[in-house]
Design a binder for these strands. Structure first.
Length: 579
RNA sequence: GGACCAGUGGCCUAGCUUGGAUAAGGCGACAGCCUCCUAAGUUGUAGAUCGUGAGUUCGAAUCUCACCUGGUCCGCCA
């Protein structure tokens, strides 16, 4: 709450209104803050319009609150905009890229000044094929959420659980063993491995048609051998996985995804059994008629879930239980976030419930950040059939398009600069497209829209930033404290005040985005801010403005540019000086 | 059959958590704006029974219930 809001609450309180919730009117014509009088109408048995009217006569303006005006059942407050503008702009100017950051500490305040620690797990690839569009959405969300949390002064640990073992891995291994002739990768190595996975699926499909399933059985056999530690198989596995990692690293780099910690399924897939056995002893779990250990969650309407098979082997959720514990113990986490698609909603409900039943206090601090599926125009992606959009291709395509657009505009620009801008702009289009929609929704991927540079897009925001940067570059006078001292803050028009109001809201926006883990709050905010800023840019001369206005506008441009840049960085998008 | 998620102009979305003043943007369409700080911009016009029906309320896109449509998931895959 800012000092203006506090003042209004104080004024209302002085006139006998104890609990007052202020609203921000939809249109600034109505004022800066509004107090709706509907709820009071019951208490005082009066028409809310009358109450508003009476209050507007009783409450006298102050230094901070310039005008109080009743419109219908609303009591509207107009704050001292000069004072507000000065406050906001001074703060942005002083704090620079730190404007909007806030402090959050651990809930257990015993550890004073200790940063809250949150792990964000995302990406989680399989090592039998290259990353695709779904991984891109996942990584882009993961990165943005991590940045947004860090901005709240939280220590974020980014982790990646690599699914590096299992039957699907064996399938590509088997195909390579049979038909690969020991060939070394002659294309990007993860794509190279991927071709054998597709090859396996095709050959297995053909077999099925003729009524056989030898290949499937061979793959099963290979998995058994892998589990027994068969040297030949392990060596092949290591070899092919190393190719995949080489390819992945390149893709991570091109997307700007970085991880602090990798977990490998192969290292933990057997773990967790002990936890389950202990749970069995303590009657948290039970055995069914086949001898498998199960968790009965029917009371919670989650059904029954097998945790350890009758033969004593573990399954996916067993390792997940172990990994959840490992994460909290290894990193002393306050919270653990899983960025995983919505098709695993039930899995995580079950997992978290089981952790709770096992008595882990931190179970309630696990959170599944569930996002919708990405559909292609021709339907669901199927990597077995090769019906995918590969991450690398996608990135290449958007960058190429950006390159084309840049060359259209700047014929003489040197190649190095073209590449730099093309990468920033192309990725911005892609990332913004994936982040602007609330991720509860499925995305029906529209190739045209995703690489569009006009309208509600990343490049639109970048463009606004670049234009503001350009204005500042052309200014001779240096922005220093002296300039600030001479500036008058009472010269702004309505549009400019509106921009300043939005700048003042940024800290709250950043907080909201963090609390709700929603990067789309930032994208929406940036679009609004940029639109307002572009209107202002279009309507008002800046550099050619008379002395007094020049100062005021330059400071406004500087601060808007600052906040737009900060916002873009939160989304994992580069703000560039020139486009 | 059950659980969860979504349904807002031709298309894509915001608003829904915490009910409030004329439902906010973009794309596409049409009509304007570059001797002026980057036209990747900007101005205007047309275009919405907020899936349907009921309920709660002074007031519902927002809350509740039922239904319709689409999607996802439903113990020994990950």
């Amino acid at each position: 709450m800012n000092k203006f809001q506090k003042e209004i609450i104080y004024l209302l309180n002085k006139h006998g209104i104890k609990e007052s919730i202020l609203e921000t009117p939809k249109s600034s014509d109505f004022g800066d803050y509004a107090f709706p009088c509907f709820t009071l109408s019951k208490e005082f048995k009066k028409d809310p319009k009358q109450i508003a009217n009476e209050l507007s006569n009783k409450i006298k303006p102050t230094k901070l609150i310039e005008k109080i005006h009743a419109v219908g059942p609303y009591l509207n407050f107009f704050i001292n905009k000069t004072e507000y503008s000065k406050d906001v702009l001074t703060e942005v100017f002083k704090k620079k890229h730190k404007f909007g950051m806030s402090i959050s500490t651990t809930p257990n305040s015993s550890a004073r000044n200790q940063k809250k620690r949150i792990m964000v797990e995302f990406c989680s690839p399989n090592t039998n094929k290259p990353l695709h569009l779904g991984h891109v959405r996942n990584c882009v969300i993961g990165e943005a959420v991590s940045n947004i949390l860090k901005f709240q002064n939280i220590k974020v640990i980014k982790s990646n659980l690599v699914n590096d073992r299992g039957i699907h891995i064996c399938k590509s291994m088997l195909a390579y063993q049979k038909w690969g002739n020991n060939k070394l990768p002659d294309i990007k190595p993860d794509f190279f491995v991927g071709t054998y996975y597709v090859m396996f699926s095709q050959k297995a499909e053909e077999e099925k048609k003729s009524g056989k399933d030898i290949l499937e059985k061979e793959a099963q056999l290979m998995l058994q051998k892998w589990e027994q530690g068969d040297k030949k198989i392990i060596s092949l596995w290591k070899r092919m996985n190393s190719w995949v990692y080489e390819g992945f690293n390149e893709t991570y780099k091109s997307l700007g995804a970085e991880f602090d910690r990798f977990f490998y399924e192969s290292k933990i897939y057997k773990e967790g059994k002990e936890i389950i056995l202990n749970g069995l002893k303590e009657d948290v779990f039970s055995k069914d008629e086949t001898g498998a250990i199960i968790a009965n969650l029917e009371k919670e309407k989650l059904g029954k879930k097998v945790l350890v098979r009758a033969d004593g082997t573990t399954i996916y959720i067993t390792q997940d239980i172990y990994l959840a514990k490992l994460k909290f113990e290894e990193y002393k986490l306050d919270e653990s976030i899983y960025v995983v698609g919505s098709e695993q909603n039930l899995h995580f409900q079950i997992l978290f419930k089981i952790l709770e039943k096992l008595g882990y206090k931190w179970a309630k601090n696990c959170r599944h950040l569930s996002y919708g599926m990405v559909y292609l125009p021709e339907g669901k992606m199927k990597s077995r059939e090769g019906k995918v959009i590969d991450a690398d291709d996608l990135v290449k395509e958007v960058i190429e398009l950006a390159r084309f657009e840049i060359k259209e505009r700047h014929k003489d620009l040197n190649n190095k600069e073209v590449e730099k801008r093309a990468r920033a702009i192309g990725l911005s289009a892609l990332k913004f497209y994936l982040l602007k929609t609330d991720f509860a929704k499925d995305i029906h991927y529209d190739p045209k829209e995703s690489i569009s540079f006009e309208g509600e897009t990343g490049p639109y925001v970048q463009y606004t930033y670049a234009r503001l940067s350009s204005v500042l570059r052309k200014l001779d006078e240096k922005l220093d404290k002296k300039l600030f001292g001479k500036t008058k803050f009472n010269v702004y028009d309505e549009k400019e005040k509106e921009i300043i109001r939005m700048l003042g809201e940024f800290p709250e926006i950043a907080r909201d985005a963090s609390a709700q883990l929603k990067p789309s709050i930032i994208t929406r905010y940036l679009l609004d801010l940029c639109q307002k800023t572009n209107e202002f840019y279009h309507a008002n001369p800046i550099l050619a403005a008379p002395e007094e206005l020049l100062r005021a506008r330059i400071i406004l441009v500087h601060c808007a540019r600052q906040v737009i840049g900060t916002g873009l960085n939160l989304l994992g998008i580069e703000a560039i000086e020139e486009m």
